[in-house]
Amino acid sequence: MSDVNYKAAYERQKKARALAEELLENRSRELYEANQSLQYAYNKLKNQKAQILHQEKLASIGQLSAGVAHEINNPAGYVKSNLNTLKGYSQDLVNFYSAVNELFSSYCASLPGGICSAESQKLIAQFEELKGVHDIKFLLADIADIVDESHDGIKRIEGIVRGLKDFSRPDEPEPQTVNLVSCLENTIKLVSNQVKHKLNITFEHEGQLFIKGQQGSLSQVFLNLIVNASHAVADDGHLKIKANSAEGFAMLHFIDDGCGMDTQTQLKVFEPFFTTKAQGVGTGLGLSISHGIIKKHGGLISVSSELGQGTEFIIQLPLDV
């Protein structure tokens, strides 16, 4: 075989090798891209499964909350009724005590010459002693205070029951067209005096966003998120609220630079009575009620956070198109 033939054969082998390497490289790239797509799809399905499980958990808690609310409401109702009766009775006792006091005070004055007999004076002295021993004046006044405080406690229980009902089955009138941008602006104005010394709020939006729903309930959600942000941040904290549309949905972002939350807290944050606040500061119902309201509007609310890195709540609501 001549050198020319050897050279031609070598060139053919070289081209074949290059073509094989190119095909192998293309195939490897295709496999890599297919693997990335599968990995992305797997992660998406995994996240969706977690969200579905979380939604089912919240739905179960909602059913439980409705039952608990009903069971609390009945005894709270007759306790409230009894307190109203007790308040009337206590007022009758106060009136009786005042009348007896007046009777004893005016008894001697009504006698000829204003002089009481020894027996009458002894009876009056015994009455005054008994009042002092049993501290009747204080008891009557304290009964009124106790009744009033108990009324406040019942009102608080009623508020909790309403919250549980709102979480499980919000009772609202027929939906109306709501401008989310105006609703947010009004809510920010409403709460500004309450948080102005601690929280700086900025609001960015891309045009007007209209949905079907109840403006009052949505304002309650926005108010809860703003107040929660004020509790999470240090002095002079920041909350950025962004509103935009994406694929037929209104997207609302509440982003603060507060203390953030760990993973376990994020999993429980929408559950009734769960709170990280100090005792007496909150009932732990704000976010659970908000979840119920957003769900009733056909939307989703989620949270993303890291300890020390702030928190973002994302609300997704279907646009009225």
Rank of each mutant, 00 (worst) to 15 (best):
H54M: 09
L180A: 04
K15C: 07
L218F: 14
D257T: 09
E129S: 12
V321G: 13
A118I: 13
Q63H: 10
G77R: 10
N193I: 06
G159L: 04
D135Q: 14
G282I: 07
D256Q: 00
K14D: 07
G216N: 08
G114E: 04
T85S: 12
S150P: 07
A34V: 15
C108P: 13
I241M: 04
G88V: 03
I294E: 00
L130T: 15
G163F: 00
G280A: 07
A109N: 11
A229R: 01
L103S: 12
L111M: 10
D236G: 11
G77Y: 06
Q91C: 11
E158W: 03
A278Y: 07
R27E: 03
K296H: 12
E158L: 08
V281I: 15
V181T: 02
P175H: 04
C183P: 04
S98W: 02
V221M: 03
K7G: 11
P175A: 00
L225A: 02
R162G: 11
V233N: 03
H205G: 02
I52R: 05
I52K: 02
L140A: 00
S304M: 11
E247K: 12
T187E: 01
L199Q: 00
L53S: 09
Q51H: 12
V195L: 12
L130W: 09
M1E: 10
K122A: 07
I157H: 01
Q316G: 05
D142N: 15
Q266E: 05
L300T: 15
S37V: 08
N244H: 09
A118S: 12
K296S: 11
F249I: 08
I160N: 04
A232S: 10
Y42L: 14
S219Q: 14
K165Y: 09
Y40A: 15
N186R: 08
G113M: 07
N95K: 14
N82E: 07
I226R: 06
H134T: 11
G260E: 01
K49I: 15
G207P: 04
E172F: 14
Y42D: 13
K57A: 02
I146Y: 01
A69K: 02
S106G: 09
K131D: 02
N73D: 10
V100H: 06
S219T: 11
F313P: 03
K242E: 02
E119F: 14
P112L: 04
Q176G: 12
D262P: 13
R27N: 10
I289G: 01
F96L: 10
L252R: 03
L209E: 00
L252A: 02
K137Y: 03
S37W: 05
N47C: 14
V227C: 11
L184M: 15
S2K: 13
A118F: 11
Q194A: 06
N95E: 11
N26F: 12
A125K: 07
A278P: 12
T311A: 05
K296V: 08
V321T: 15
L180M: 06
K165M: 12
G207F: 02
L223T: 06
R12T: 15
Y42M: 12
L285D: 00
H197G: 05
